[in-house]
Amino acid sequence: MSSTTISDAAQRIVSQGDSAPRLARDPVNQPMVNNWVEAIGETNPVYNDPGFAARSVHGGLVAPPAMAQVWTMRGLHGQRADDDPLGAMTAVLDAEGFTSVVATDSEQTYHRYLRPGEHVAASARLESVVGPKQTALGEGWFVTTRTSWTVGEEVVAEMLFRVLKFRPPGEHRAPDADRARVVDAPEYAAGVLRPVISADTAFFWEGTSVGELRIQRWGETLRHPPGPVGTGGDLATTPDYVVARGTGTLYSYVVHHAPKVPGKRLPFVVALVELDEGVRVLGELIDVGPEDVYIGLAVSVVFLRIDDELTLPAWQVAQ
């Protein structure tokens, strides 16, 4: 539902094309170049030594190409233009709960170097909005824009810029979605065997702590328990994860009677659940009498919150 809202908005903004060119506050100027080369630590004299620059391939002073974007930055009190496509798309995603942002890619192409006195303008358009994707940061949408810098009619530089707008941890469900049940289970804290967590499995436990059953994904393949290498030992691929719907059926189960297990009350049931997504996940099956348990029983995920550090995934009989 929210996906449709976002996709529709994206289509509308993409169809609007380029925003009106917005002129830089100042023309390309030496003082700003000087500030920039000082801060960056740039020592190339073509940017600030007129004599050297005159004898160089440039035949005179030029501005550092990587400053292209600097000229049209909005500045301290600047406002986004009304037709700025990234601003419009950001507002849509914010409203859907994807409030956090991180830039992922910047691809700048410089058609020529700029010279002091030239006055550039920038216009931008929305290229694409792709999602929802499960990423290490959370569920989010990749928003790609293309900016063109012009002097008069001439395009002097271009940039493809991509950001991930994501739902910050803790705000794990769209407001209208069903939240998985989280059970405060401090009584389990007494000696419960805590998981050893590695760089490969941390996302899983971070997920349980926010009520998400996260299943590692390598391309199209889901994998649980997770690991550091994709199917077939391919070191070139990297995983993300999906948040499982949290429903499945019992593939097998154990009713544990003896001996005592730290943090469990005897007898207890442990279920090996085949998720609707196809992988199996183990967890205690709570709030059920052993006599009512059978292979094929439909269950849904529930989270046992032990303390700030540990939340265990578990199962309950589906309503």
Binding site: N44, P45, V46, F52, S56, V57, P65, A66, V102, A103, T104, D105, S106, E107, Q108, T109, Y110, Y113
Partner: peptide
């Protein structure tokens, strides 16, 4: 060096 012309910078963050 100073005679080099930079044509593009594509970075992943």
């Amino acid at each position: 060096g100073s005679e080099a012309l930079v044509r593009s910078i594509k970075i992943r963050l």
